[in-house]
Structure formats: C-alpha cells, structure tokens
C-alpha cells in the first residue's frame, strides 16, 4: 500500500538516537495486532535534517545523552511540524534531573515553545485504548529507577488544539524496547499506549 503507516525513528546529530532499537518493531506489531490500519512491516530511520522526514508525519525521538539540534535540523523539523507533522520525544533516562531532559526541554522551547502539561483527559488517552488515569505508568517508574518518581502527566506543545510535540519523562523507550514475541509473557500489553499515540497522530 502506498499510504501505509511507516514508523519513523528520527536521527539527530547529537546524542544516542538509536538507544531503543526494538521500539519500532514492537509498536508496528501492536498496530498490526489491534487495528486494521495499513502499516509497513518495518520502520525507517530518517535524519532530522533530511527532506525524507516529510514523508513520515510522525517521528519518534529518544536518547540518554544531551539532545541538541543543529540549525539545519531545527529548521527542517520546524517546517515539518508547521505542515502537520508530530514529534514524539521520550526521555530514555526517566530522570527529570538527567541531561537528556534538561537539554531536550531547552531545545523544544528554542525550536517551538515551552512545554505545557497535557491534561489526563486529553483525546490521546482515548484515541484507541482508554487510559482513564492518563499516561500508563512504566515498570521503571514503579521500580523506583531514574528519578524515583511516577510522572502523572505527559507534556506537549499544542498548536490549534493539535499536539505538535509530545514529550514523555516516563521512559517508554525502555518499557517498549523488547522483542514483540515476548508480549506473550505479559498479562497486559504495555505497548497499548504506543498504539494510542500512533492513532492520535493519524487522526488529529
């Protein structure tokens, strides 16, 4: 299918953008498993300063290290969101005092605008599965790793009612970074919120 959804991981010049390599295949598996959306079997990795970024209106970014965009990346990704693209950034450290969080929030403010708290009643929590209490907690939060906090909210840059940048401190990158085959060992599929993010991006 020409219009199928292709999961896109963004490659940026600084940091370790490739720190969660199994997230893509895991979320692709979940989208195919739960929905009838046309989804490509494999994801793609696209540099943030590439014109190819515009072929994928949802891009996923993660990392542990300092997050800095080059001028070309910043210009490109700004134009990308101006046209309707959505950026999902997850702090792989799960640490509000960590270097990724500090640099990423600064970069988001520089490129778009400062993040604001996303209410737990936002449509993204009911786009497909229902999450009545907001973003699902991750095992890293529950186990007290990182900053030893359970973050009750996600943050976002919202423009005209649409999420332009979705930012998470919850470390979904660790939570979803496993082979899809291993879902059979879980009583509840912890990637379901990932399906919501993709469905939201496709419908809002």
């Amino acid at each position: 299918m020409v219009s199928e959804f292709v999961f896109c991981t963004g490659q940026y010049a600084s940091g370790d953008w490739e720190s969660a390599p199994l997230v893509a295949s895991n979320l692709i598996d979940s989208v195919a498993r739960y929905t009838s959306l046309d989804v490509a079997a494999t994801g793609v990795t696209v540099p943030l300063d590439s014109p190819r970024l515009f072929e994928h209106p949802l891009v996923y970014l993660t990392g542990h290290l300092p997050f800095r965009l080059s001028a070309a990346e910043r210009t490109n990704v700004k134009a990308y969101t101006d046209r309707g693209g959505m950026v999902f950034i997850d702090d792989h450290n799960h640490d509000v005092g960590g270097i990724f969080h500090k640099t990423a929030t600064e970069e988001i403010a520089r490129t778009w605008s400062p993040l604001s708290q996303l209410p737990n009643t936002h449509r993204i929590y009911s786009a497909f599965f229902e999450f009545d209490e907001g973003p699902p907690a991750t095992s890293h939060e529950l186990n007290g790793w990182g900053d030893n906090l359970i973050h009750p909210h996600l943050s976002a840059v919202v423009r005209d009612g649409r999420i332009v940048v979705l930012y998470s401190n919850k470390d979904y990158s660790s939570e979803w970074n496993y082979h899809p085959e291993n879902k059979k060992f879980s009583s509840v599929d912890n990637t379901r919120f990932g399906v919501n993010i993709i469905v939201y991006a496709l419908t809002s």
């Binding site: 219009s3 959804f5 739960y34 929905t35 009838s36 959306l37 046309d38 209106p57 309707g84 497909f128 469905v199 991006a201 496709l202 419908t203 809002s204």
Partner: peptide, 29 residues
Amino acid sequence: ASAGWESKFVVAALEEAGWTVDARLRIAP
C-alpha cells in the same frame, strides 16, 4: 475513510479553509 495520513490532512486542510468537518475514520473492524 480509514485512519491515515490522507484522511488526517484532508480534514486539516478543509478545517484550515474554514469548513466545519465531521469525520468518521475507521481504525479497526
């Protein structure tokens, strides 16, 4: 339509042009 980039951006374009748009987008059976 089915949920997808085409339906998303057609709705967005028409809303930006001032139309009031209702949508029914299929996600799963």
